[in-house]
Every structure is written in structure tokens, then in C-alpha cells.
């Protein structure tokens, strides 16, 4: 049987394949990735798109959590100050209810409690990054102003709106409590209790003072109960932060599995491709010049 006398095209094709292999290996080595374009591995490329999205989302959740954490911490510690102020008011009330005090002493106590009243208004008007934290969603106006025409001594300018933010896949948390629920609810109105104490001290009415002290005690307990919301939310955020951090680690492992070049394998491929290229070139230069014509004399 006659054999193909011209092996050059086959050898060139082999060299071409060889060069392609070397180029691919070099691309993987220089980029560190085995999937450099979708056709390298379509399924992995698609999975990498989803992986990149999930990684960015997880990082975004972490960023959002860190933003709202500040606000929640600040609200929580403010409520702590509110409780302290209420305790002061309670002890002033207890002192005022003591029958040994004269009218001017009681007036002096009333002035002190008025100071606590303004302090509470200040605390309830806490602003974080320019937003009033306890104003519901009407965050651009201070929620409480002193108002002598109001029975509670203040007017609430906020609303009862609450916000939630998404911090995980289908996972949202509420991030605020409105002042109308915290400080001026119908059953436990902090400002009403303070105003009642001031009125009682001013009028020297021991019964009224005692009633007001009772109201204040209830209000203080109520604030403590409400603080649990902030504590819970903060610990939820912390737990979610831990989860998201481990998720990003997993995602980055997955990204490596999907798209990172297997360096030892790639380098050994490259070496064998180079060796085979070398061998092809050498045998080409040795054999191609040989035919019968070279031997005719």
C-alpha cells in the first residue's frame, strides 16, 4: 500500500495543537484561573457568575449590618441613659413625697425634675447621621418638643413607622422603634409620668407625687422591656455577621474549586507540551531532508 509521502501538514498540525496547549497553559498560569472565558467551561462560568453575585451580596449585607449596627448601639445606650434619668426622677419623687419637705423644697425638686424632662426630650431626640432615631420614619424632624399646652408637657411630631432592612437571603430585621411606642404610648407614657411628677411637686400634692412615682416606675420598667428589642436585634446582626463571614469564605472556596487553575497540573502539562514540541521539531529537522535523491551520485 502506498503511504502518504507528505507528512509535513500532519506535523504542522501537531505543532499547532502543541502551541495551542502551551498558550492555554500559559494563560492559566498567568491568570491563575482555569476558566478565562465562558467556553473554557460553560457550566463553571455560569456558576461563577452566581458565585460572584452571592459574594457581592454577602459583602453588601455585611456593610449594611455595620451601618445599622451603629444606629442600634446608639439607640440602645440612649435608652440606658433614659432609664438612668427616670431612676433619678423616681428618687426625686420619693424625696418629694416625704411629708417633711416644705413647699419651697418641693418647688426646688420640681425644677430639678424639669431639668430631667428636658434631658429626656434631648435623649428622645437622638439623631444618628442626621436622622432622628426615635421619630418613626419621619426622621427629618425632632420627634419631641416641649409644649406647655400639652398634658404630657411635650408634643410628638414623629409617626409610628418602622423600617426593616434585608441582611440575608429572605432575611429582614426591623431596625427601629418609633417614639410613639417607646416613650409616649397610651399605657406607658414617660413624658406624662414626668409631667405628672412636676405638677405634683409644684402643687405639693403628696398623693399625686406618689401616683407619678408609680407611673415613672412602670415607665422605667417598660423602657427596659423595650430595650430587649435593641439587644435582640444587635445580637441577630452579630450572629448574621458571623454567618456571612463564613459564607464568604465558603463562596471563595467554591470560586477556587470552580475557576482556579490547578497549578501543579497546568505546569506539568506545560512541561510535557514543551518536551513534545521540542521532540517534534528535532525529528522534523532530521527526517524531512531525507529522500533517495540525496543518495544518488
Amino acid at each position: 500500500m502506498r503511504i502518504n509521502p507528505d507528512i509535513l501538514p500532519d506535523l504542522l498540525a501537531a505543532l499547532n495543537d502543541n502551541q495551542q496547549q502551551i498558550n492555554d497553559d500559559l494563560e492559566q498560569i498567568s491568570s491563575g484561573r482555569s476558566v478565562n472565558q465562558p467556553s473554557d467551561n460553560p457550566a463553571a462560568a455560569a456558576a461563577l457568575v452566581v458565585n460572584a453575585d452571592q459574594t457581592s451580596q454577602a459583602n453588601q449585607f455585611l456593610s449594611s449590618i455595620s451601618t445599622v449596627s451603629g444606629e442600634l448601639q446608639s439607640a440602645d445606650s440612649t435608652l440606658n441613659s433614659v432609664t438612668t434619668a427616670l431612676q433619678q426622677a423616681i428618687s426625686l419623687g420619693v424625696e418629694g413625697a416625704n411629708g417633711t419637705l416644705n413647699a419651697s423644697d418641693q418647688q426646688a425638686l420640681a425644677v430639678q425634675v424639669q431639668g430631667i424632662q428636658s434631658q429626656l426630650v434631648n435623649l428622645a431626640n437622638l439623631a444618628y447621621q442626621g436622622n432622628y432615631v426615635f421619630a418613626g420614619t419621619a426622621t427629618s424632624t425632632p420627634p419631641y418638643v416641649l409644649d406647655s399646652t400639652s398634658s404630657s408637657g411635650v408634643t410628638y411630631q414623629g409617626n409610628s413607622g418602622v423600617n426593616s432592612i434585608t441582611i440575608g437571603n429572605q432575611y429582614t430585621v426591623q431596625t427601629n422603634l418609633p417614639g410613639s411606642q417607646l416613650f409616649s404610648s397610651s399605657s406607658n407614657n414617660v413624658f406624662q409620668a414626668i409631667q405628672d411628677l412636676i405638677t405634683g411637686l409644684q402643687s405639693g400634692n403628696a398623693t399625686a407625687i406618689s401616683t407619678a412615682v408609680g407611673e415613672l416606675t412602670n415607665a422605667s420598667n417598660y423602657i427596659d422591656q423595650q430595650r430587649v428589642f435593641y439587644g435582640n436585634t444587635i445580637s441577630q446582626l452579630n450572629a448574621q455577621t458571623t454567618y456571612l463571614n463564613s459564607e464568604t469564605t465558603q463562596l471563595s472556596q467554591q470560586q477556587n474549586t470552580l475557576g482556579a487553575a490547578n497549578m501543579p497540573a497546568v505546569i506539568s502539562n506545560l512541561e510535557s507540551a514543551q518536551v513534545s514540541r521540542q521532540a517534534t521539531l528535532e525529528s522534523m529537522s532530521n527526517t524531512l531532508q531525507n529522500n533517495l535523491f540525496n543518495y544518488l551520485r
Binding site: 472565558q37 462560568a45 453575585d53 457581592s56 449585607f61 449594611s64 442626621g130 434585608t166
Partner: peptide, 26 residues
């Protein structure tokens, strides 16, 4: 091919910016 300016990245970035906005909507 995934890059900083591909559609997938920009979809993700858009929604991230919306999530960030929800932390301080004003």
C-alpha cells in the same frame, strides 16, 4: 467574560446600592 464592567457585575452592584440605601433612605 467576567470583568468589572459586565452586566452581571452591574446588576449585582445596582441591587447592592439599593440595599445600602435602605440603611439610610434619606
Amino acid at each position: 467574560t467576567s470583568s468589572s464592567g459586565d452586566i452581571g457585575t452591574d446588576i449585582t452592584n445596582f441591587f447592592s446600592s439599593v440595599n445600602q440605601l435602605s440603611t439610610n433612605p434619606s
